[in-house]
Computed example of a mutant assay.
Amino acid sequence: MEISSTSAGTSPLRIVRRLGDSPRLRGSASGANCPDIFELSNGDFAVIGTDATAALDPHLPPDAARADHERIVVITRNTLIRAKGDIHDA
């Protein structure tokens, strides 16, 4: 899958790999419409989760902020825990 990069002059971003188990392996009967974490070709991460911006934005700590184009996304604890073994320091 390719998406356009937000950085000028760079090649399109690609999903390189899933971090953690697939939704089906985490217990989703259909394997669809579940939280997921992906590593991108530029080293960043993409997250599929529930948009909770409206509910959580007013509760951000004073030293946290988000741009208008950013969203607060919620993923399950299980999704993140099962992905942590795939996240490396380098």
Rank of each mutant, 00 (worst) to 15 (best):
E2L: 07
E2G: 08
I3T: 12
I3Q: 09
I3H: 05
I3V: 12
S4A: 09
S4F: 05
T6D: 10
T6A: 14
S7F: 04
S7N: 04
A8W: 01
T10R: 05
T10K: 05
T10M: 07
P12N: 12
L13I: 05
L13W: 08
R14W: 01
V16D: 09
V16P: 00
R18E: 13
R18G: 11
G20C: 03
D21C: 15
D21Q: 15
S22Q: 04
S22M: 03
L25N: 15
R26T: 03
R26C: 05
S28R: 06
A29Q: 10
G31M: 01
G31R: 01
A32W: 04
N33L: 12
C34L: 08
C34A: 15
P35I: 13
P35V: 13
P35G: 15
I37R: 02
L40E: 06
L40S: 07
S41W: 01
N42R: 01
G43F: 01
D44Y: 08
F45E: 07
F45Y: 15
F45C: 09
A46E: 03
A46C: 10
V47E: 10
V47L: 14
T50Y: 03
T50D: 10
D51Q: 01
T53I: 09
T53V: 08
T53Y: 07
A54S: 11
A54W: 01
A55Y: 05
D57H: 12
D57A: 15
P58Y: 01
H59Y: 08
H59C: 07
L60I: 06
L60K: 05
P62W: 07
P62T: 14
D63P: 00
D63E: 03
D63V: 00
A64F: 10
A64N: 10
A64P: 00
A64H: 08
A64I: 10
A65Y: 09
A65E: 09
R66L: 13
A67V: 04
A67N: 04
A67L: 07
D68T: 13
D68A: 14
H69D: 12
E70W: 05
R71A: 14
R71E: 08
R71C: 13
R71K: 14
R71G: 11
R71V: 15
V73L: 11
V74T: 06
I75L: 08
I75C: 06
T76D: 10
R77C: 15
R77P: 03
T79M: 13
T79D: 12
L80H: 02
L80W: 04
L80C: 04
R82N: 14
R82E: 13
A83G: 06
A83N: 06
A83F: 03
A83S: 13
A83I: 00
K84W: 12
K84F: 14
G85E: 08
D86M: 07
I87C: 10
I87M: 13
H88N: 13
H88C: 12
A90E: 11
A90G: 14
